[in-house]
């Protein structure tokens, strides 16, 4: 049960709402808060019982809402969730939301590590909530939003910057070299497909970008995911030499591949096991090779 114990200092109760809230809404908020307080007490008691029970998972979840009083100051909430074999962090979060606190907010959809919605910072590492077994983690399980991205609310971060970087590398196939027959495919060797295969697995979850402290310092750095996307196309032989040259020009720019300091943190957190650092290094070598031609 949620004990709602804030780890940071208690908020000043007199602290004002956001200026935009209407009186009606304020009243509503007030009522809800009172009810929440009563519920908290009930839940606190239940939580103590639950905490004594070994078969529960202790979640410490980051909470923040710019709009709701009491959540404007970031804090951690505790939830005690009944454990079952095979339970993932996402399962635990969903249980906590559906049973204890419906305002607990996080993105999730497919539950099978393909939609990339639920990259979270779990016990100090970027992981997909759905792909992480609770039993593999130390208790308590600390769940936070992805670092280095602006927090919208609770575990939800603003992904716009990540999407911008992804789209900055012209992430779409471009070729002038299509077969004459409209019903004929372009041929691609198995070796070439094998070469780009891992890079095509990216699910845009943003874990790599969040783990990269170069991306944290340099806002314009394209970042591992976007560079991997560039690799996916630059190495695909179907696009042809001219396009490859163009793609190398994109990744060669100041905030491109040269920023990578081969810390391997992106490679380590990638939930799809994409060798991101390897791909970035390969792009660096390609870029040097193509430049040496002109020297």
């Amino acid at each position: 049960m949620s004990t709602q114990q804030p780890e940071t200092q208690e908020d000043d109760e007199s602290e004002g709402e956001l200026e935009t809230t209407s009186p009606a809404q304020q009243q509503r908020l007030e009522k809800k808060r009172q009810r929440a307080a009563a519920r908290e007490q009930r839940e606190a008691e239940a939580a103590e019982r639950a905490a004594a029970d070994e078969n529960t998972v202790h979640l410490k979840v980051f909470r923040y809402d710019p709009e709701v009083e009491g959540k404007q100051e970031p804090r951690f909430d505790d939830f005690y969730v009944p454990f079952h074999k095979g339970m993932t962090v996402l399962d635990a979060l969903m249980y906590a939301r559906d049973n204890y606190d419906s305002s607990l907010t996080f993105r999730h959809s497919c539950r099978q590590a393909i939609c990339g919605s639920d990259a979270l910072f779990i016990n100090g590492s970027q992981r997909l909530g759905c792909q992480t077994q609770v039993s593999d983690l130390d208790d308590p399980v600390r769940v936070e939003p992805l670092p280095h991205q602006e927090v919208v609310k609770d575990l939800v971060v603003d992904m716009e910057h990540f999407y911008d970087q992804m789209e900055a590398v012209e992430p779409y196939f471009q070729t002038d070299d299509l077969p004459d027959d409209e019903l004929e495919e372009q041929h691609q060797t198995r070796e070439n497909r094998e070469k780009v295969k891992m890079s095509t697995r990216c699910i845009w979850c943003g874990a790599c970008m969040s783990s990269c402290n170069i991306a944290a310092g340099d806002n314009q750095y394209l970042g591992p995911a976007a560079l991997n996307k560039a690799y996916r196309f630059a190495m695909d032989e179907r696009e042809g030499a001219d396009m490859k040259q163009r793609r190398l020009e994109i990744i060669e720019q100041e905030h491109g591949v040269w920023r990578c300091q081969t810390q391997f943190s992106c490679t380590e957190v990638c939930p799809k096991d994409i060798p991101l650092t390897e791909h970035i290094q390969a792009l660096k070598r390609e870029a040097v090779k193509s430049n040496l031609k002109f020297w």
Binding site: G124, H148, E150, N219, T262, Q263, F264
Partner: peptide
Amino acid sequence: MSQSYNRGRIEDFGRWREFSAGMWAWI
């Protein structure tokens, strides 16, 4: 991102315990 919301304890060096080999090598 420099303009991002400061989440205190989450910031980089506070997490040194969680750094991996490649990160230590870089440091």
